[in-house]
Design a protein around this nucleic acid. Structure first.
Length: 598
RNA sequence: GCCGGGGUAGCUCAGUGGCAGAGCAAUCGAUUCGUAAUCGAUAGGUCGCGGGUUCAACUCCCGCCCCCGGCUCCA
């Protein structure tokens, strides 16, 4: 039912080639115009497909040499000319066999391949000027309807998305209903570049990458503060909700992975280590080791649910071309937990996890959207249990008044799941939390049991769940979401004391020491530099509060408070600032509250 | 892994078959300063790594590593 625009083009199913809404239609039309421009400038290229996508469109071409930046400029100019020519989009229909002959004659093998793979008796073509494309539409009436577009980039892409197929040359572009919308979109792209966590991570001394450890960050002292604060918050929440923290081995004999099935299905993604003629693997997941904790005792129905949390360091071999800063790493720290429970406890446990999701995300101002993935064709396990579990998941969401979308057939083979997606400050979506039910993988493969009230050994259900997902990726997302200006409770440095000159250095130091003794992460910048210079540096480091002290403040026992937002809150008693700071750190708001009248 | 673009000082980047450069940062000195950059001096390099061509390679050629944008992958 929900079909990607690419699938529409390739499968040629459904009524249309793009969502019949104004924006997708416009983008789809723009992709045709771009293809027309490319054919005019490079008559030898072959057409593949050109759908509308989330924020624009692309078109794939078979061309021996990649497009250059200069090519894109020329193509963009030609697109502009075609738009100005105001060519109408004209729909034609013809029998499929005739269309095959038409595109064979036109030397378009990809169009022929698409036509041969569909079984409609009649197909439609769209023509604008000298350009004809196989297409179900819809399109704008004429090329002049395209008001605001821009070609963005080119890159390689596989035909039909398979790496076994030849590589085509793809050009990405975007189109919007107005110039204002286009400008806003381009601004967002620029802003995203500025906020790139790889750049900010280096500038703010949070973390860096080196080629000695591809896909694994070096956490610098300041980044480690953020990490530890997230960890502390997470532990507080879980400790208060009946979780028991465990830690299982990182280097594990391959026998375990044979038992779990990972050796068969996941070996390509595991790092292997040979020692004393045995093969070990760095764990890519925590779940198999966690079953050893479950099996440490015979479990009674009275023991359940058991909630084992684990901040496990995982290693997955990701192919070199797929690594991307903190967003795609080879080594990461998952905020994992495995809940073992009876089937009748499922719903309460799921609700409990959803509450944690809301609690943890709420602190960052994220409002999660939920997706329920249901039984796939490859599912294993008792269908009745699947039914019960899907109902439990849906009802758990309903009881928390949370709407959700269904992703039919998208569940894991071992159970259905709920995923949570958030939007960041730039409107980008991130899938973070996952709550996966498991009837098969852990319970069956590891023969987990509990003794039920009737004296029979029964199989528990396992819930795999992570909230942040991984600390690495989450810190990357937070860095970009806040553009490095972390809420005070997370900020590596929460306040910096700036004495105006050496004459008040002693007072500055006393303020600094008071704050430090109260547990505030405070720094003293009494370097021999002008105040403006030191303010600028503190500002660039996104330190929430600057406490400026001069002769007046030293007389009155105050500090002049400057927020990183640029606001000058004026002179305030040191006691007041300290009390406000402590309160702010404890309550974890996303905004700066110190010195605001209450 | 595939296609393309890159890798030069801590950072951002210029450079080119013939002595390795700038700004910022760093260090030292002067300045003692009131809300986003005081002035001067000094120091800083395996030009990603390995091989080849050449009288001479940062520059040209080959291989590899890493990064970036995509594709694929993310049971």
């Amino acid at each position: 039912m929900t079909m990607s625009e690419e699938e529409r083009h390739l499968r040629f199913e459904g009524e249309t080639d793009c969502e019949p809404a104004p924006l997708p239609t416009l983008r789809h039309s723009c992709s045709h115009v771009m293809a027309q421009a490319v054919k005019q400038l490079f008559p030898e290229v072959k057409l593949a497909i050109g759908p509308a996508i989330e924020e624009g469109f692309y078109y794939d071409f078979a061309k021996p040499e990649p497009f250059t930046a200069e090519d894109l400029v020329r193509i963009e100019q030609r697109v502009g000319e075609i738009i100005r020519a105001d060519l109408p989009f004209v729909r034609e229909e013809m029998p499929r066999e005739e269309a095959i002959r038409f595109f064979e004659a036109g030397g378009e093998p990809f169009k022929v391949e698409i036509l041969k793979s569909i079984d409609a008796p009649t197909v439609s073509l769209y023509r604008q000027g000298d350009f004809v494309d196989l297409c179900r539409g819809p399109h704008v009436p004429s090329t002049s309807r395209i008001k605001a577009f821009k070609l963005l980039s080119s890159s390689g892409a596989y035909w039909r998305g398979s790496e076994r197929n030849p590589m085509l040359q793809r050009i990405y572009g975007t189109a919007w209903l107005s110039q204002g919308d286009l400008d806003k979109y381009l601004w967002r792209l620029e802003e995203a570049k500025k906020r790139d966590h790889r750049k900010l991570g280096r500038e703010l001394d949070l973390f860096v990458f080196h080629d000695v450890a591809p896909g694994a960050p070096f956490w610098l002292p300041k980044g480690m503060v953020v990490f530890r604060e997230l960890e502390r918050f997470w532990r507080d929440v879980h400790d208060a909700r009946g979780y028991q923290e465990i830690s299982t081995p990182i280097l594990v004999n391959k026998r375990l992975w044979e038992e779990s099935g990972h050796w068969e299905h996941y070996r390509e993604n595991m790092f292997l280590v040979e020692a004393e003629e045995q093969t070990f693997s760095l764990k890519p997941m925590n779940c198999p080791p966690s079953t050893y904790v479950y099996r440490h005792h015979l479990r009674s129905y009275r023991d359940l649910p058991l909630r084992f949390s684990e901040l496990g360091r995982l290693h997955r071999f990701e192919r070199s071309g797929t690594l991307a800063g903190m967003f795609r790493v080879r080594q990461f720290t998952q905020d994992d937990a495995h809940i073992y429970c009876r089937p009748d406890q499922l719903q309460a446990e799921i609700i409990g996890v959803i509450e944690i999701v809301q609690l943890l995300y709420g602190v960052f101002g994220f409002e999660p959207r939920f997706f329920l993935s249901t039984k796939p064709d490859t599912a294993m396990g008792d269908p009745a249990l699947w039914e019960q579990a899907e109902t439990a998941l849906a009802e758990a969401l309903a009881k928390r008044d949370l709407p959700h979308e269904v992703r039919a057939g998208e569940g894991a083979f071992y159970g259905p799941k709920i995923d949570a997606v958030i939007s960041d400050a730039l409107g980008r979506e991130w899938q973070l939390a996952t709550i996966q039910l498991d009837f098969v993988m852990l319970p069956e493969r590891f023969a987990l049991e509990y003794m039920d009230a009737d004296g029979q050994a029964k199989r528990p259900v396992a819930i795999h769940r992570a909230i942040y997902g991984s600390f690495e990726r989450f810190v990357g997302i937070l860095t970009e979401h806040f553009a490095g200006a972390f809420p005070t409770w997370l900020a590596p440095v929460q306040a910096r004391v700036l004495p105006v000159s050496e004459k008040v250095a002693a007072y500055g130091r006393s303020v600094f020491e008071r704050l430090r003794e109260a547990g505030i992460r405070v720094e003293l910048d009494d370097r021999n530099e002008k105040l403006g210079y030191r303010i600028r540096e503190a500002q660039l480091q996104k330190i929430p509060y600057m406490l400026i002290v001069g002769a007046r403040e030293s007389q009155e026992g105050t500090v002049s408070l400057r927020r990183r937002t640029g606001e000058d809150a004026g002179a305030l008693p040191v006691d007041r600032v300290l009390a406000d700071l402590v309160a702010e750190v404890a309550s974890r708001p996303v905004t700066l509250t110190v010195g605001r009248s209450s």
